[in-house]
Design a protein around this nucleic acid. Structure first.
Lengths: 384, 384
DNA sequence: GAATCTACCGCAAACGATTCCGGTAGGCAT
DNA sequence: ATGCCTACCGGAATCGTTTGCGGTAGATTC
């Protein structure tokens, strides 16, 4: 028989529907509704792997949790004795603070987010690892997001980071990003943003990039000084800023030495291996083929080199080649590839450093633009 | 004059010390202590960049936050009308759920941790990126830790992950890890662990590794079949499992074809560039130098190749070379390097997949050992 | 000896969710 | 008209912290 949970009587009980699969009862005397508690989960509790909290410590020492909290931090209002006791008990109980709870009350997650377009090349992973190192040293975690060069995913990524309440964000945009509301949302909530590599001109935030222009200028200048006269350029996709900057460096170097700029000597490559070969063929098939090529990056330069070798074109005597990015392959190919080295991991480190600074300074922070220097690494592929 | 905050009288007030920099008062009539609230922070509140919460939505619609929560999820007890209204208001107010709060109450952070020894080579970053992709697809974030090949940092890493209440962990141990309490702590709290690459035999958890033995066997067998008879091996540091497995493959291949195992033909390299050169010299300086070398990885193979070329030793006719890991450089060096390809990103993907499965299954999960296959990529460096 | 001060400590309110439990209005059957 | 049922909603506890504020015992001062 069902007894009322309040008056313990039986006579006034009627059924009153089923709620969430459980029979509910009604006691007319007490005018209350109730369901019977099920006992089946008592043993579940036993099995639960409990992590010790400050309450556990407090109970063990018979003090309040506030005191425990104070003992665990730098706080004046604490007796050295109790502090020691708490610390010892924390050690004994193997206490690990719940950073989630801490983040919640402090409104600070000690986490930064990173949005990058892809992981295909070694480029972005290297940047991320650089950023991660700096972040870790400062006690920050990192959440990584890939936009896959898609605007929609990028917006979704931004939401994820917002939902995780990151303290700051590092961004390298997709090629197709033209609207920036999802980035501005960060600013609106006072979350600092640092762009790197693929920066957003429309936003007044910190930016880190390598001096592509200067690197390209140095590269082409080097070719010119080595006696090459008909210098071509395999550029990147037009949508990218690096493409423009490196192209500009190429043009300015020609102009500086009064060499003519010939439109047919510039081709654009989408950076895929296949397209790189196509571009290389296009240049070598010209009626007046170039005697040197400055390539937007090393993989493209290497494809060009392989093609030239296949066609028995002598490098560097008949064709000088300079790449960009200093990938390991360039070092072992023959002849070794002259290239422009960009400090990839430094991009990540710098960006993370600036971001952490911004987080620390809060509203007082003033955006900063950093341009990292490139170095020309001269090897055999460009010595006529 | 100071008025009591309760009785508003002035006569019974006396000073009573200074607490946290503020003057405290005592009212004899009411027998209470009090400090004066400072007004200076009223404007601070205005400036705060508030993110909308379910309470904001509830207030806007004049309903309770329970209802909002129900509307935002799959829950039966909700009127379709109110649900729509909540969803619309959430959109208008640009609501982003606070995952920290959610994690706290659900005791589930939707985050997995990864501990790796280093980021120096492309190896671990690639694995991490593979794992990250799988995790992201399942809505999980990833916290990355570097142990820097140090046991102490590894222990610290484990604490960080524990403190962040990760739902699972991916681990590749340091060379010097001999005690495993910091790993067992995860198990104790029911947090699943998957080892990869550098696994811990002492723990009964899932493990993912590549079949180094089989890869090495195939590589050396290939050399033998190509007519090489005096095959050497540059191995890795003795502390690593891969070193043993690859060495074992080397030995077994020799045995299989009844070739003698010569002790002087095996040298161990710590994998640094410098030591690789030393090892290469050691082999080439032998009275009876080998006619082929199976190297523990590609970078070592390449150093050997460069040295051989410097000494005018013809590859592959006088010296056959096989590497391990298929790095990009091997493809462009001349002659192109024969190598054993290991599915690096797959290690990360597999490990993450298994881990997510373990998280989902909870206690019902049974540890699983996965051995990923290698592929021999035959290029010119081994064709006698 | 009374007033005041100092050094600690505890209470309780946040933080932003989820979720159990009970309450209530209106519909339907008796 | 009475009772029961369903559909829906609100209250309140909970997760593990931090922290402002008030309280108290003992020391110090006048």
């Amino acid at each position: 028989m069902i007894k009322c949970i309040r008056c313990n009587h039986v006579h006034a009980i009627t059924k009153s529907g089923i709620v969430r699969g459980k029979q509910r009862y009604y006691c007319k005397d007490c005018n209350i509704y109730f369901t019977l508690p099920d006992e089946t989960m008592a043993d579940l509790k036993q099995h639960k792997k409990h992590m010790t909290t400050i309450v556990d410590i407090a109970r063990a020492l018979n003090i309040s949790k506030s005191t425990v909290s104070r003992a665990l931090h730098e706080h004046g209002d604490i007796n050295p004795g109790t502090k020691a006791a708490v610390l010892e008990m924390a050690r004994q109980l193997d206490y690990q603070p719940n950073l989630l709870a801490k983040s919640l009350v402090k409104s600070k997650s000690n986490t930064i987010g990173i949005i990058v377009p892809e992981f295909l090349t070694y480029f972005f992973p290297t940047i991320i690892m650089g950023a991660q190192q700096v972040a870790a040293e400062a006690g920050y975690n990192v959440i990584i997001c890939q936009s896959q060069e898609s605007y929609k995913t990028e917006v979704a990524n931004a939401h994820v980071l917002l939902a995780n309440r990151v303290d700051g964000v590092l961004i390298s945009m997709t090629r197709e990003t033209k609207k920036f509301d999802h980035f501005k949302a960060f600013e609106k909530h006072g979350i600092p943003v640092v762009f790197f590599n693929r920066v957003c001109d429309e936003m007044d935030t910190s930016k880190v990039l390598v001096n592509d222009y200067e690197g390209a200028l140095k590269a082409v200048e080097h070719l010119i000084k080595n006696g090459y006269k008909n210098i071509a350029h395999i550029g990147g996709p037009p949508a990218l800023l690096i493409t423009h900057n490196r192209l500009r460096g190429y043009k300015d170097a020609l102009a500086k030495y009064k060499l003519p700029f010939k439109k047919e000597l510039v081709v654009h490559c989408n950076l895929s291996k296949k397209d790189a070969i196509t571009c290389a063929e296009q240049l070598l098939d010209l009626k007046h083929p170039p005697d040197a090529v400055f390539c937007v990056n090393d993989p493209v330069a290497i494809q060009l080199m392989l093609l030239a070798k296949k066609r028995k074109i002598k490098i560097p005597s008949e064709l000088g080649i300079v790449g960009f990015s200093n990938e390991p392959s360039g070092e072992v190919i023959e002849p070794a590839l002259t290239t422009v080295q960009q400090p990839v991991a430094d991009i990540g480190r710098s960006a993370a450093g600036i971001l952490l600074e911004a987080i620390k300074k809060g509203d007082a922070y003033v955006p900063e633009k950093k341009s990292l220097k490139t170095t020309l690494i001269v090897r055999e592929s460009s010595k006529k």
